[in-house]
Design a protein around this nucleic acid. Structure first.
Lengths: 337, 337
DNA sequence: TTCATTTGAGCAATCGATAGCACAAACATG
DNA sequence: CATGTTTGTGCTATCGATTGCTCAAATGAA
């Protein structure tokens, strides 16, 4: 691979001169600069980031840790983050953990080894202590999920508030018995969402017994099973709230198979707004989390932080972006009973 | 950040000894090794990859260039690739180009600068010459799309063959007039798919005029528009083939709105098998490209290649994986006309 | 006790880019 | 003509990990 030394030899200058010419140092004459640039171009010179880094400090890499890239949610984050970072010259090193704490730890370790400028992560469900210790060595910020760590920097969405608003919408329409189908409350996000639903009931002094909660895994299969089970209840709920897009899919597939009319016999609100929610018949009313804007503002904030001198860094920062309740055709008044 | 020097000072050894102890050199006594490892652990030492690399040669990074990570197709690739590479200690540096040749070039340049061990890419539609020149400096392999470059290393799917089989399936069912809705044939993949459909007609000596081709963009909106247009034809096709998952979605939404029964009045075969195809009512018959296995075998082959000495590298290698035609309930015999 | 051999560890160079300092040549000023 | 100043380059150390070579101490054999 071509180095500054090769250019130096070719032109008869010293390595220093080449380096200065390429970085536009004013001490080098225009004539020399032109010659150097031409030679660099001709030889196909590309500066060695590793060497540059060793001298100067940090790299232009930002580590991104996600549980799963095939999930719409996380893919949007990757997309938005990648764009924002690109604009400021940062590159993304990707880690997909599959929510496995071991993998997560290995990758964090490697990121520290690669001397990334910083790490943006959606923590796994059970983050290891070692991982937290490693993170301590690097600038980092948590996204969506919150695993209280060495530092307290977090960008999330209004899980609870969004759910509360969605529940209120259903209650306003006249529904009383509602089913909430979601993943387990092992994750902070899950807990907040469940609490949001309950909060809506509490604030209206409605009995929590009217709320049927089905918690398991964030899969379509679970959504389907939960709804099948729910439909078998004698006096079953008239509306359902989903805690994740996959669950939504299973739910509505189950409803259609059972020939339950949406929204005639059952109102549905999904969480997350993948493409198909809009194209489904009827189009599904959903809570749309502000993923893109969340990721973008997080990226900008983080890159700004990376340039801030150590002594002026805040040690704690929490930001929440607000979800949107997108009203489509899957919600309506409950049927007279 | 902690370096070997810090450990050396703490223990009173030289840096060389520390380095040897950590890498398990047999010349260092067990006792010393233990002491060094303990100290490293205690101080939270993490080796500097950049320094290690400068000396030794290449890094443990593999550049991955994708047009779009939110696309199911590409997300699967990222997932599979990430897993395979992880197992062998490689990390993924991600580039999302948005199919923009400029961005693509910038990122390739940075990858070369970062001295990645290799690059795996799904080329953008109009790859720049400069990009190809840069790629020449690094080991690389193309995925899915094929932009004849400096070298001829490519892992793809059987676009044409898969389409031909799908078309044959419809022809076998008795359909004669078929609509093919897809993105433009600007990409090599698109061209191969279209040719596959046509090939099925040719081989049976059926007139290509029975085939209605709608080419534009790979979006749901286009799928919808195309189908609306198609339905307005007096003696319209009795079956439709989609060239991409987004198009499939638009198509079936349009059909449902027009109250066209699937498969009673219209058979549908989608291309690509995102989750919802299985959950839709009726479940959609699709061509399922072997994305995961493609990515995995590509990753394994590529990492093996990275370890092969220069003089034993083959300069050309093409591999194609076969798609699966997943029969579900959206295809049937045409209605008597 | 002396010499040979094994064992354990240090010195110094290396990778590529950068930056402080030194220095020669060209020029201006008295 | 002598001295000061500007301009353009080169020399060399530096970052952190690695490695060939050197060398001292410990061990064994005669």
């Amino acid at each position: 691979m071509v180095t500054t030394k090769d250019i130096a030899i070719k032109l008869g200058f010293s390595v220093s001169t080449i380096g200065r010419a390429l970085s536009g140092d004013p001490r080098i004459s225009e004539k020399t600069k032109l010659a150097v640039r031409a030679a660099a171009e001709e030889l196909g010179y590309v500066g060695n980031m590793a060497a540059r880094m060793m001298r100067g400090g940090s790299s232009n890499l930002i580590g991104l840790i996600l549980p799963d890239i095939q999930n719409d949610f996380f893919a949007s984050i990757a997309q938005a983050l990648s764009q924002s970072c690109d604009r400021q010259g940062y590159r993304i090193v990707l880690s997909i953990t599959g929510d496995d704490p071991e993998t997560e730890m290995r990758h964090i370790h490697d990121f520290v080894g690669a001397r990334v400028a910083g790490i943006i992560l959606v923590p796994s469900a059970d983050m290891k202590r070692e991982s937290i210790a490693l993170l301590r060595q690097v600038q980092h910020v948590q996204l969506l999920r919150y695993a209280s760590g060495p530092d307290d920097l977090w960008f999330g969405i209004d899980d609870g508030d969004a759910m509360e608003r969605a529940t209120n919408h259903l209650l306003d329409l006249g529904h009383r018995r509602i089913a909430y189908v979601a993943a387990s409350d092992r994750l902070s996000t899950g807990r907040r969402r469940l609490r949001g639903v309950q909060e809506a009931y509490r604030k209206r002094d409605l009995p929590l017994s009217d709320l049927s909660v089905f918690l398991d895994t964030p899969t379509a299969t679970w959504g389907e099973r939960a709804i099948n089970e729910m439909l078998s209840i004698a006096d079953h709920p008239t509306a359902i709230l989903s805690g994740s897009a996959h669950v939504t899919m299973g739910m509505i597939a189950s409803l259609r198979r059972a020939k339950v009319d949406i929204p005639g016999q059952m109102s549905v609100i999904g969480f997350g707004d993948p493409n198909w929610c809009e194209w489904w018949q009827p189009p599904i009313t959903v809570i749309r989390p502000p993923i893109q804007s969340l990721a973008t503002s997080c990226a900008l904030w983080f890159m700004d932080r990376l340039r801030t001198p150590e002594d002026r860094l805040v040690s704690s920062y929490h930001a929440t972006s607000s979800s949107e309740l997108v009203l489509r055709d899957s919600t309506g008044r409950p049927a007279r009973s």
